[in-house]
Each structure stands twice: as structure tokens, then as C-alpha cells.
Amino acid sequence: GGHPVTTQMVETVQNLAPNLHPEQIRYSLENTGSVEETVERYLRGDEFSFPP
């Protein structure tokens, strides 16, 4: 991942996926670069990993 992630982006995802840890959200956003894509992954039931 190398996309810039803002606190705003993390908070937006958190509102839609409250049971995800912020670190999981941030890591996913760094890989996708997209709030929409991260939320899609969540709704699909994809696994969210923590940063290594």
C-alpha cells in the first residue's frame, strides 16, 4: 500500500463499519486508496488484516 490516508477517510469507514478496528481500516485504505472500495470489501465480508 502507498495511498495517503486521512483521519476523515478512516472516520467515514468507521461510521459504516463500526466493528472494524481503526488500524484495520487504515491498512485497507492504504491498499485500496478508496473509502468506497474499503466499504465494499467490508460488505462483501472480506477479511480485514492488521498492518504487519
Score class of each variant (00 low, 15 high):
Glu47Asp: 13
Ile25Val: 06
Glu30Arg: 05
Val39Gln: 03
Glu30His: 07
Ala17Val: 09
His21Pro: 02
Glu37Met: 11
Gln24Tyr: 02
Gly33Trp: 05
Pro22Phe: 09
Gly33Ile: 02
Arg44Ile: 05
Val39Ile: 15
Phe50Thr: 03
Tyr42Ser: 02
Asn31His: 14
Leu16Lys: 08
Pro52His: 08
Gly1Asp: 10
Met9Thr: 02
Asn15Lys: 15
Asp46Ser: 06
Val39Met: 14
Thr32Pro: 00
Met9Leu: 05
Tyr27His: 14
Pro52Met: 08
Leu29Ser: 02
Phe48Gly: 01
Glu37Ile: 13
Ile25Leu: 01
Gly45Gln: 03
Glu40Leu: 15
Arg41Glu: 03
Ala17Gln: 02
Thr38Asp: 01
Ile25Pro: 04
Asp46His: 09
Ile25His: 01
Glu36Asn: 09
Glu30Ile: 09
Ala17Ser: 03
Glu37Phe: 05
Tyr27Glu: 08
Arg26Thr: 06
Val10Cys: 09
Ala17Cys: 15
Ser34Met: 02
Asn19Pro: 04
Glu37Gly: 07
Glu23Ser: 13
Tyr42Cys: 03
Gly1Tyr: 12
Phe50Trp: 15
Gly2His: 14
Val39His: 05
His21Asn: 08
Phe48Asn: 01
Thr12Leu: 15
His21Tyr: 07
Leu20Ser: 00
Thr12Ala: 15
Phe50Asp: 04
Glu23Gln: 11
Pro52Gly: 08
Ser34Pro: 00
Glu47Tyr: 12
Glu36Asp: 11
Gln8Ala: 13
Gln14Ser: 10
Glu23Met: 13
Gln14His: 11
Thr7Gln: 15
Ser28Leu: 05
Asp46Gly: 06
Asn15Gly: 13
Pro51Arg: 05
Thr6Met: 06
Tyr27Ala: 10
Glu23Pro: 03
Ala17Asp: 01
Leu20Gly: 00
Glu47Asn: 11
Glu37Cys: 10
Asn19Val: 06
Arg44Lys: 09
Arg44Trp: 04
Gly2Leu: 14
Asn31Thr: 15
Leu43Val: 09
Thr6Asn: 07
Ala17Phe: 15
Phe50His: 04
Glu23Asp: 15
Ser28Ala: 11
Val35Glu: 03
Thr12Pro: 01
Thr6Gly: 03
Gln8Val: 11
Glu30Met: 13
Thr32Tyr: 06
Val10Tyr: 05
Asp46Tyr: 11
Ile25Phe: 00
Val39Thr: 06
Val5Asp: 02
His3Ser: 10
Val10Ile: 15
Ser34Glu: 02
Pro18Gln: 08
Glu47His: 13
Ile25Gly: 00
Gln24Lys: 05
Ala17Met: 08
Met9Cys: 09
Thr7Lys: 14
Phe50Arg: 02
Val39Glu: 03
Val5Trp: 09
Val35Ser: 02
Glu30Cys: 10
Asn31Asp: 13
Val13Glu: 00
Pro4Met: 14
Val35Lys: 00
Ser49Met: 14
Pro52Ile: 09
Gln14Cys: 11
Phe48His: 02
Pro4Ile: 15
His3Tyr: 15
Val10Gln: 06
Gly33Arg: 07
Arg41Leu: 07
Leu20Asn: 00
Leu29Pro: 04
Pro51Thr: 04
Thr6Ala: 04
Gly45Ser: 02
Glu37Thr: 10
His21Met: 08
Ser49Lys: 13
Ala17Leu: 13
Tyr27Asp: 07
Phe50Met: 07
Ser34Ala: 04
Gly45Thr: 00
Ser28Val: 04
Ser28Tyr: 06
Asn15Ser: 14
Ala17Pro: 00
Gly33Gln: 07
Ala17Ile: 13
Gly45Val: 00
Glu11Gly: 07
Pro52Asn: 09
Leu29Gln: 02
Glu30Ala: 11
Phe48Asp: 01
Ser49Phe: 13
Phe50Tyr: 12
Val35Tyr: 03
Val10Leu: 11
Gly2Ala: 14
Leu43Pro: 02
Leu43Trp: 09
Thr6Ser: 10
Ser49Gln: 14
Thr7Cys: 15
Glu30Gln: 13
Asn15Cys: 15
Asp46Pro: 00
Ser49Cys: 14
Arg44Thr: 05
Pro4Leu: 15
Arg26Cys: 10
Leu20Glu: 01
Arg44Gly: 06
Ser49Ala: 15
Gly33Glu: 04
Met9Pro: 01
Ile25Gln: 01
Pro22Cys: 10
Gln14Gly: 07
Glu47Gln: 12
Glu47Arg: 08
Glu40Ala: 14
His21Ile: 03
Val13Leu: 04
Leu20Asp: 00
Pro4Arg: 15
Glu37Pro: 00
Thr38Phe: 03
Ala17Thr: 08
Pro52Thr: 08
Pro18Phe: 05
Glu40Asn: 14
Ile25Met: 00
Tyr42Gln: 02
Pro22His: 09
Pro4Val: 15
Val5Met: 03
Pro22Tyr: 11
Val39Asp: 01
Gly2Ile: 14
Thr6Pro: 05
Asp46Ile: 08
Glu23Phe: 08
Asn31Tyr: 13
Thr32Trp: 05
Gly1His: 13
Pro4Ser: 12
His21Cys: 13
Leu20Val: 03
Asn19Tyr: 09
Thr12Lys: 13
Glu11Arg: 13
Gly2Met: 13
Ser49Leu: 15
Ser49Ile: 14
Glu36Thr: 12
Arg26Tyr: 10
Val5Lys: 03
Met9Ser: 04
Glu37Leu: 13
Val10Thr: 05
Tyr27Ile: 10
Leu16Asp: 03
Val35Gly: 00
Asp46Lys: 05
Glu30Leu: 10
Asn31Ile: 15
Gly2Arg: 15
Asp46Asn: 06
Leu20Arg: 00
Pro22Asp: 06
Ile25Asp: 02
Pro4Cys: 15
Glu40Ser: 12
His3Cys: 14
Tyr27Lys: 10
Pro52Arg: 06
Ser28Gln: 05
Ser28His: 07
Gly1Lys: 12
Gln24Asn: 01
Glu40Arg: 15
Gly2Glu: 10
Glu36Pro: 06
Gln8Ile: 13
Glu40Met: 15
Thr7His: 14
Val10Ser: 02
His3Pro: 09
Leu20Pro: 00
Pro22Ile: 13
Val10Glu: 04
Ser28Ile: 05
Gly2Tyr: 14
Glu47Phe: 13
Tyr27Arg: 11
Arg44Ala: 11
Thr12Phe: 15
His3Leu: 10
Ser34Gly: 04
Thr12Ile: 14
Leu29Ala: 01
Thr7Pro: 14
Leu43Gly: 04
Glu36Ser: 11
Glu47Leu: 11
Pro18Cys: 10
Gly45Arg: 00
Glu36Leu: 12
His3Phe: 15
Ala17Gly: 02
Leu43His: 08
Gln14Arg: 13
Glu30Asp: 05
Gly1Ile: 12
Ser34Phe: 01
Glu23Val: 08
Met9Lys: 01
Thr6Ile: 06
Thr32Ile: 03
Val5Ala: 05
Glu36Phe: 11
Thr7Leu: 14
Pro4Thr: 14
Phe48Thr: 01
Thr32Gln: 02
Phe48Ser: 02
Met9Ile: 02
Gly33Asn: 07
Pro22Ser: 09
Phe50Ile: 04
Thr6Lys: 04
Asn15Val: 14
Thr12Glu: 14
Pro52Phe: 07
Thr38Leu: 05
Glu23Arg: 08
Gln24Trp: 03
Phe50Asn: 03
Leu43Asn: 09
Pro4Phe: 15
Gln24Asp: 03
Thr12Met: 15
Val35Leu: 08
Glu23Leu: 15
Asn15Ala: 15
Phe50Cys: 10
Pro51Gln: 04
Glu47Trp: 12
Gly1Glu: 11
Gln24Gly: 01
Gly45Asn: 05
Asn31Pro: 00
Glu11Gln: 13
Ser28Asn: 06
Ala17His: 03
Asp46Val: 08
Pro51Glu: 04
Thr6Tyr: 06
Glu11Cys: 13
Asn15Tyr: 11
Val39Tyr: 12
His3Glu: 10
